[in-house]
Simulated scan of single mutants.
Amino acid sequence: MSLIMGLLFGALAGFIASFIMGEKSGWIKNIILGIAGGFVGGFAFDILGLSASGQFGSLIVSVVGACICIWLGRRLF
């Protein structure tokens, strides 16, 4: 059950980040962006000395990280 919730949570974070960044993407890309965004956002927040707690805080971290991933993807490719 937690795997399904993680995928849905990742898809939501990826969808929000895609909407913010004006990116057109499908469900699979949104899930990957959301999951990768969780790692990237967690790393970025650690470097900045920030922390987030709870589900809403984790969603914010994932969305910020996914936005960073989209931005980096645009710069590299």
Rank of each mutant, 00 (worst) to 15 (best):
Ser25Arg: 06
Ile28Ala: 13
Leu59Ala: 12
Ser58Lys: 14
Leu76Met: 15
Phe45His: 09
Ala52Gly: 10
Phe56Val: 15
Ala52Thr: 12
Gly26Met: 03
Ile31Phe: 05
Gly41Leu: 05
Leu33Phe: 00
Ile4Thr: 11
Gly6Lys: 13
Asn30Met: 04
Arg75Met: 15
Phe9Arg: 12
Ile68Trp: 01
Leu7Gly: 09
Phe19Gln: 12
Val63Thr: 10
Phe15His: 05
Leu76Pro: 06
Ser25Asp: 09
Phe43Trp: 11
Asn30Lys: 07
Ala17Ser: 13
Ala11Gly: 06
Val40Leu: 03
Ile31Val: 15
Gly37Cys: 02
Ala13Trp: 03
Trp71Phe: 15
Lys24Met: 04
Ile31Arg: 04
Leu3Pro: 06
Phe9Gln: 09
Ser51Gly: 13
Val40Ile: 09
Arg75Ile: 15
Trp71Lys: 06
Gly10Pro: 03
Met1Ser: 14
Ile68Val: 14
Cys67Val: 11
Ile68Leu: 07
Ile68Ser: 11
Leu8Asn: 08
Ser62Arg: 10
Cys69Ile: 04
Gly54Ile: 07
Ile70Tyr: 03
Asp46Ile: 00
Gly26Ile: 01
Gly10Glu: 02
Ser51Asp: 13
Ala44Met: 15
Arg74Pro: 05
Gly26Ala: 08
Met21Glu: 10
Val63Asn: 07
Leu3Ser: 13
Leu12Ser: 09
Phe9Gly: 08
Ser25Lys: 06
Leu7Phe: 14
Phe15Lys: 11
Leu3Met: 10
Phe45Thr: 10
Cys67Ala: 15
Ser58Glu: 10
Ile47Lys: 11
Gln55Ser: 14
Gly57Asp: 08
Val61Met: 14
Ala44Cys: 08
Leu33Gly: 04
Gly65Gln: 06
Leu7Asp: 02
Gly38Leu: 08
Ile20Gly: 00
Cys67Tyr: 07
Gly22Ala: 01
Gly38His: 09
Ser51Lys: 14
Phe15Ile: 04
Leu12Lys: 08
Gly42Val: 10
Gly41Gln: 03
Ile16His: 00
Val40Arg: 10
Glu23Trp: 05
Ile68Glu: 04
